[in-house]
Amino acid sequence: MEIDFTINGKATRLNIDPAMPLLWVVRDELNLKGTKFGCGKAMCGACTLHVDGEAFRSCSIPAEFVSGKSVTTLEGLSESEEHLHPIQQAWMEENVPQCGYCQPGFMMAAARLIEQYPAPTDEDIKNNITNICRCGTQPRILKAIRRAAEIKQSLKS
């Protein structure tokens, strides 16, 4: 089936199985490896990306779902590698990643969160982001999200 959608701002047409999880479309058909496979059951959040601005766990949504929609992966989050998104800037400032594998999913979930909660409390963050990190970067992720919200606010003013 032919599916038309936008990926990181670029119009794309793919002829693929409409049931193929979006995760594998992004990783293997579009060769964007920033979105990670962790569990395949929407439980760990490593595959989080944005569809029309909302955060989704892409391992569990079929390709046909994004027909006519706009998909953003970590690769499309920032303007460029020099001008990082506030989430990525904060991740750099707080020196967050360890192995780094789950971080793209966390960053995508967090980027959506600070849209919804411009000044999130720890409770807001804890209630809304349930991704898994085995290395134990959670204390720094909490700090980085609060910091990212500040950076975002300062850009507006």
Partner: peptide, 14 residues
Amino acid sequence: KRIDLKQKVLGKPI
């Protein structure tokens, strides 16, 4: 800070 920080923040295929 980690020397692999930026690659990991950019989600490079490492």
